[in-house]
Design a protein around this nucleic acid. Structure first.
Lengths: 175, 175
DNA sequence: GCAATTCTGGACTGATCAGTCAATAATTAT
DNA sequence: ATAATTATTGACTGATCAGTCCAGAATTGC
């Protein structure tokens, strides 16, 4: 999953995957079907893991803080070394839209689900359902932007400041 | 350029390019060097064309309107059929970061230049230099988000509304 | 402890890839 | 008109790709 996440679908050759997994070709095809099928599984795993992260953050923090922490998560260059990977769903949409629409759609659908999680946080924070829907879409835009930005060679500070601005503007808006 | 823009670098095979350009292999290599070199040229062409679009819009509209029109541009499914292509620079950063850092950096640099154009508009609209810098970064985040969103199968309406929200929040902020 | 079953690795296949090159066609110069 | 130059083509190369398959290793059931 990490390899696909970092390098994308096409740039991850089967040999690369085998090296990373330390298994032989036969085992791979016996266990996972084919490259594409594994990618789909990894995409689902990414979605599950990310959902779990959101849940964990929501359990510990008030909803608006949770949104901030989620947007900031995995921007640190230390933790698990996933900085610079971006979001696997965003990466998939960009790389595979028009190339493999089924995979791109799966990724896009997960993003829609994440957007509803944003909406839930907003509702919980006292926003009206209509406003929650509107600002949920806004936060998805911000999220997509953050994940693109995290693949560029920008300082962590720059990313954090942009998130800060986006959330400060949101806070100033009526609930 | 259109083929690279729509399909990305890796998914555009040389045969695809030759079919699109309607030339033979030898002519291609005589004229463009190699696939990678052509991609870089296309990236530069994309940057030039986009700069020209920004200039054109700025000439016709007050600065804040110009920003809105730029963010909305090529979201229409009629005009030149570039809807769903996203931004070639964003696509390049996502696809090629870690794969071909030189190309990814070229794309990222152009995005930085675009960000300064946003800043110029903001200054022109009466924002202080400090605020213009901050909101320029914010607008780049929004831009990146919009270009990701435009590769998903969302309705044009959804994209426009998210842009609307992002700009309304900005307008409400102090200059 | 032995046999049946499952798992594993790596040689192999055909397809496709980017890039080369020499023969040919088109153009330009004289 | 003819020679020199330039442009174009598509067959060719070696590399790499995803996916197959079978022999041998490990595991399981009895």
């Amino acid at each position: 999953m990490k390899l696909f996440w970092r390098n994308g679908y096409q740039a991850s050759s089967l040999s690369d995957l085998l090296d990373e997994m330390k298994i032989g070709r036969g085992s791979f095809y016996a266990a996972f079907g084919d490259k594409r099928h594994l990618y789909l599984e990894c995409l689902n795993l990414f979605a599950e893991r990310t959902s779990a992260i959101v849940q964990k953050i929501r359990d510990k923090h008030p909803p608006m803080d949770a949104i901030r922490y989620f947007l900031q998560h995995s921007l640190n260059h230390g933790e698990g070394s996933k900085a610079g990977f971006g979001c696997m769903a965003v990466n998939t949409v960009i790389e595979l839209a028009g190339i493999d629409d089924e995979l791109a759609l799966a990724a896009s659908s997960w993003l829609s689900k994440l957007q509803t999680l944003f909406e839930e946080c907003l509702c919980e924070a006292g926003y009206s359902p209509a406003r929650a829907a509107e600002y949920g879409a806004y936060l998805m835009l911000v999220n997509e932007g953050v994940r693109v930005a995290s693949r560029r060679k920008l300082t962590r500070r720059q990313s954090l400041e942009a998130i800060d601005t986006a959330l400060r503007l949101l806070k100033a808006a009526p609930r």
